[in-house]
Amino acid sequence: MTANEIAGRLRAEATASAPALLLRRWEDADAAALAEAYRDESLRRWTSHAIGDEESALRWIREQGRRWEAGDRFSFAVLETGAQEKPVGHVVLKGLVAGSGRAEVGYWTAAHARGRRVASRALEALTGWAFATFAGQGLHRLELLHQADNEASCRVARACGYERAGTLPAAPPAHPLQGHLHLRSRVSPVGP
């Protein structure tokens, strides 16, 4: 199955306190919700994209589509299923290079959806999808990077089985502060 065939079917089950999640490709209709999410100062602090209005959100969404088609970045809008389905988060698989065996994951959650395990449930769905979809290309390790002072991202990483593997030095301007590197390896099935 191809990345495009599987992408429409990523889901995370409902919990006692939160609805199920649907992960799908970003759509032009998501621009308003994306621009609204980026009004949150905390989100802007932890992300590297500058989205200030619906126009820049639309440009970002279209770039995600181009990168998806190029096969080097797979960005998913995260939606809580129910009466009003609009993105409440984002997960991404990026840096997938054939033969390298590794790629990077990232995520964010909109301010109004925090505290409902959106990031961890979406990351777990993305992780399973990535390992299943790209196993034939040798993907066996996923890397998760975040600023060292982003304790929420550390919690999400640990909750999803991404073990902390080290501290990375600051690399301004893209990475002005030290970062943490977390890793998760694909578990190979045990043979007879």
Rank of each mutant, 00 (worst) to 15 (best):
G82M: 07
H180E: 10
A174P: 10
T47Q: 04
A70E: 14
H140Y: 07
R25A: 14
E104V: 05
L96P: 11
E85M: 13
R45V: 02
V190N: 08
L183E: 13
L139A: 00
E41D: 14
G128Y: 06
G89A: 02
A98F: 06
A119E: 00
S185N: 14
E41F: 10
G89I: 02
W68M: 11
Q137G: 13
G179M: 15
P19M: 03
A7L: 03
R45D: 08
G166M: 10
L139Y: 03
L21M: 00
A16C: 02
Q137E: 12
V118A: 06
L126K: 01
F134A: 04
W46Q: 01
D30G: 07
A29Y: 01
E69A: 15
G89H: 00
R11D: 04
A16S: 15
E13M: 05
A165W: 00
R39E: 15
Y107D: 06
E54C: 04
A12Q: 10
H182T: 13
A20Y: 02
R45I: 00
R39V: 08
A174D: 14
A35K: 04
T15E: 13
L22R: 15
S42D: 13
Y162D: 10
A98I: 09
R114H: 11
Q64H: 09
P189F: 07
Q84F: 08
Y162I: 08
E69L: 15
L93S: 02
A119V: 00
C160Y: 06
E36Y: 01
V97Y: 01
H175F: 14
A50I: 10
S48W: 05
L23K: 06
G99P: 14
A113I: 08
R186L: 07
A50E: 12
R117D: 11
L139H: 00
D72A: 09
G65F: 06
E151Y: 04
R164W: 10
G106E: 01
G99S: 12
A37R: 12
P87H: 02
F134I: 01
V88R: 02
T109K: 00
R164N: 07
R59N: 04
L21R: 00
F76D: 07
A148M: 13
A14P: 14
A70Y: 09
F134S: 07
A135N: 03
E80C: 09
E27V: 05
E63K: 11
G106C: 03
G115R: 09
H49R: 11
A110Q: 06
T15I: 04
R66L: 11
D40K: 03
G101I: 05
A159K: 15
H140D: 07
W26S: 02
A119I: 01
T127I: 08
S120I: 03
R184P: 01
G65Q: 15
A37P: 12
R141F: 03
Y107A: 11
V92D: 03
I61A: 06
T2V: 08
A12T: 07
R141Q: 13
R11K: 03
R59H: 11
R45L: 12
A31N: 05
R73I: 04
S100D: 14
K94W: 09
S56A: 00
E13S: 12
V156S: 05
